[in-house]
Design a protein around this nucleic acid. Sequence first.
DNA 1: CGTCAAACTTGAATCTATTCAATATTTTTT
DNA 2: AAAAAATATTGAATAGATTCAAGTTTGACG
Lengths: 210, 210
Amino acid sequence: MTGLRTRQKADRKRRILKASMLLFRRSGYRHVRIEDIAEVAEVSVGTVYNYYATKGDILIAIVAMEVEEVLAAGEALLATPPVAMRGALQALISHYYDHSLNYLSKEMWRAAMALSIEAPLTPNGVLYHQLDDRLRAQVQALLASGQAQGEVDPRLDTDALGDLLFNSLNMMFVEFVSDDAMTLEALKLRLSRQLDAMTRVWASAAHGTA
Amino acid sequence: MTGLRTRQKADRKRRILKASMLLFRRSGYRHVRIEDIAEVAEVSVGTVYNYYATKGDILIAIVAMEVEEVLAAGEALLATPPVAMRGALQALISHYYDHSLNYLSKEMWRAAMALSIEAPLTPNGVLYHQLDDRLRAQVQALLASGQAQGEVDPRLDTDALGDLLFNSLNMMFVEFVSDDAMTLEALKLRLSRQLDAMTRVWASAAHGTA
DNA sequence: CGTCAAACTTGAATCTATTCAATATTTTTT
DNA sequence: AAAAAATATTGAATAGATTCAAGTTTGACG
């Protein structure tokens, strides 16, 4: 049987995370004070800091949940090799986007991104960047698998193109969360136009239709 | 003749900005307290806030100086239409990168980016995004001019491709400033690989060499 | 000049994230 | 099961950005 202390620890940590999610979504990350979280989680301010080193850590824990789910879904998509690259890319990335507001509000995303940029060497920042790298690798893997199937011109540098595309989709996501008025639809439309521009070229190169 | 008050105002504002640049570069944005700036600028804390609404405003003012210079140099490059698109893009973007550490340290860039993301609606955030948009427009204009000259396949959507490329170069810059060990060389190499991947395809499309 | 209003400056007070020394609880040892 | 050790909790204290009421300085006008 688990020791009392171990159970209490897990329970307190869960309560703190749950309270934070609730409050962050309701009132915004910035506006919520540690004191508020402590109150809802029924612990003291000091205890919150026993479980999470900073307020930002709590937020990044929520981001990690979000991204892990998206990555898992991405793995599933990658498991069945794509029929058409253009559609597969659109599907993968759209899924990233569609899932993004499940746990986090736009304001929470902004705060998380700001954190990861401002303090890239904290455990937080490192974790955030690792998640990004795994997403990037997924996009690159999809392109590589398309190339292996002859869907993509074999002369293309799929790693570089995947890098290019991932960077862009990531930056577009930054702009999406930076603009409360921007819809998912608008975001996906912008993505779509870039995918068209990219893949139209590939096609012409691959089939020699110039 | 200018009133005394007007002159004093300009003088104080300049002193505050100068003191801030000095201190930010020497000790890092985070580490510098408004009190330190006030002391070096020989004004009180309250006065600093009379000229800049927040600490971040001072930083963004420095960023704006930096980016305005880069934009001006970019205009010059655009004035003489490119001979080879690949080289022109590399030259334009390399210039952005090379100039970037003239006024700002990596740590200052990180702080500025974090600010602009976290608070996109403040005058600060808006200004930062406008600067970004002007840079983006420059990349797109270069591509468009290359297309007008027949350097780039006329069927390509240069706005979308410019958007794609700009997003990527911007995100790579984020990663550059997030990693104190990363050199400008490494950054430009990564860019170069993406440009190769992009332009190799265009060339084959444009010249029908597939 | 002398006076008044407008525009500035000032630093003490406020608001929050974070730290830390004092307690309190749980586990281990005897 | 008492004592000692290990581990957690607590909230008061600290630090630094920002605010604001009170006090100054400047410029306009007689």
